[in-house]
Design a protein around this nucleic acid. Structure first.
Lengths: 336, 336
DNA sequence: TAGAGGATGGAATTCGTATTCCGAACCCAG
DNA sequence: CTGGGTTCGGAATACGAATTCCATCCTCTA
């Protein structure tokens, strides 16, 4: 039943197929009477142009690609992921674009996805997240002039379009918040070492301390895998210091909760003895005892900015500035 | 640079464009020597067929549509959502399909998305979730013979392809688990009234009771919005009964946690005085005190089954049975 | 050795839309 | 009444790949 095309419409309206196309594309130079006649038929048949044909003809699909450089199953319960996708869909939808989500199942698969989406011209542009610092694909995309935007920091190139959370500023803000509360020995628990995010937040933490005339003490910095155990172990390490910290800034909420629990096991009260601040403001925060103060990343803003930039890029509009930093905000709860 | 097509390959390999196409599609009736010559050029130029042209020609896009009947922002932190998407991408990817995710921003938008994806033939099939019980779009899809699969129960039609979690069985199993632990007065806290899921789980709960010779007592059933407050309020109601329950089965984890907290505020010990079981096995479960026993829905299985069925439908393979029920399993923790 | 039959590759067409190009009709001024 | 300019719609073509159809050439047999 859906095998109706402009040709059929044209036949029924007794005009040429070109006229049908003109009417549908609001070409001003078409007689009003004809326009109505055509629209009547279009309406009656519920005709809608075939996106596949339009894609071929116009050389663009109105499809954005969202690629996660991670196995699909690994992001199953990642709250970041769904929030990001939701906002991208929203923003893209407003401008008539759709979203094609892909993930690399294997390391080899990354290359395949790159080929599949880019070379086949299946999508008009790409939004990449969780890119490695040195990512060969980024170089190739740049070389090919293929539109893409990166969410998260990327250092080597400066000309590429990037949207990132203000990790330095956020960590600094959180640290200063603790300082204002009179905390003296503030510790930092970092996530996976080597990630730019980990380093950035450490920078912010350090900057806040130093601008308040407090010397940076490496003993007060611990690292742990992003899990409750990781947080607990890191906290254990910090508590064994001769002078234990009176506040902890953690790389993410799960680490923070692990740390909090470990402190509680030692009989310490939160926030009285030790204040704890997490990162990401996940739903978990409200459910732990005491509720966790956390830094909220503005994911919708991140997603919207990235999407808008990508569409601008695709449609040839200038994108300025190339790198955008989105501010985060602190969500105060009971733990600090 | 990517403006190379089969015509260009043909020119360089000194064959016709048709031959290039034959080689790429493994047509057996092409001379081996020619095949090699063509493949050499294809390889050298890194040529990959244009998906847009293929879509038009083959009348299929190898794109699956995933439609959520909800505003994008509403699913921002929904763990269900990302788990579902991740597994769909995985399964679809194995068979050369991609996933196009869409959400209805507004009620009017639902219609628009339906038009956009279906009528424009942008996708080969649809996976729908959270459909209303009476959904006009489903009737239209069925009438048009457009391939689609529903995740979640749908009653009116029996011929449509459906994959659903075994809500009745799961609630029954959880209730029996509590009964085996010697619980006598088991209460049920339901979610949004009117939803099939709510009713199904209530059915399972009731069936378990009755098969154990325990009369169903409507006083032991409360309903609440899916929030911590909702759970707390429902629990308050249950605790005010002359004979308070010694166990609670909740519609989801958040409700369960709310109920648990409320019981604790009354000085009751979990699980000694009141056992609590939640639903969905969200990450929250491990983080509350005591850790929440919950029913885990097999989301990957749900997603994979739905995807596989959709692809079977698209490629004309028979799908049997039309309705598939995926079993859930209980994850015991401390709260029961 | 001629004719049948098979193998093989090229020309042409198709998918549905957008667009270019051009001819026809019409208007007004000279 | 005719020529130049304008308006408008239809024929034709392009987008890139797949496929049908056909011409050619080769081989084998009678």
């Amino acid at each position: 039943m859906a095998e109706i095309g402009q040709k059929e419409i044209a036949r029924l309206a007794r005009v040429s197929q070109a006229t049908v196309s003109r009417v549908l594309n609001n070409d001003p130079q078409v007689n009003e009477e004809l326009r109505q006649r055509v629209l009547a038929v279009v309406d009656a048949l519920g005709y809608v142009p075939d996106a596949r044909a339009q894609s071929l003809r116009a050389q663009r699909t109105r499809l954005l690609g969202f690629v996660v450089h991670r196995a699909p199953t690994a992001l199953a319960h990642d709250p970041f992921f769904s929030a990001l996708i939701a906002s991208i869909i929203d923003q893209a939808g407003r401008q008539g674009y759709h979203l094609c989500v892909d993930a690399a199942r294997t390391v080899k698969g990354q290359r395949a996805i790159y080929e599949e989406l880019l070379r086949t011209r299946r999508v008009d542009g790409l939004i990449l997240v969780e890119s490695e610092t040195r990512d060969e694909r980024i170089a190739r995309l740049t070389a090919q002039g293929f539109p893409f935007v990166l969410i998260g920091r990327y250092e080597p190139e400066d000309a590429i379009c990037t949207v990132d959370n203000d990790n330095i500023g956020a960590a600094r803000m959180a640290t200063e918040y603790l300082l204002r509360q009179g905390r003296q020995r503030i510790a930092y628990i970092g996530g996976p070492a080597g990630l730019t995010v980990t380093r950035d937040r450490l920078h912010g933490y350090r900057a806040a301390l130093e601008s308040h005339g407090i010397a940076y003490d490496p003993h007060l910095v611990a690292f742990g895998a992003s899990s409750e155990q990781g947080g607990a172990r890191a906290m254990e390490e910090l508590l064994s210091l001769s002078m234990r910290p009176d506040a902890v800034l953690a790389f993410d909420d799960v680490l923070a909760i692990g740390a909090m629990r470990q402190a509680q096991r030692h009989g310490l009260r939160i926030p009285d003895d030790v204040a704890v601040v997490g990162f990401n403001d996940t739903p978990l925060c409200s459910f732990v005892e005491p509720a966790l103060t956390s830094v909220a990343i503005d994911i919708p803003m991140l997603a919207r900015a990235a999407t808008q930039r990508l569409i601008d890029l695709i449609e040839g509009r200038p994108v300025e500035p190339r790198r955008l930093i989105v501010p985060a905000r602190l969500v105060p709860r009971e733990s600090a």
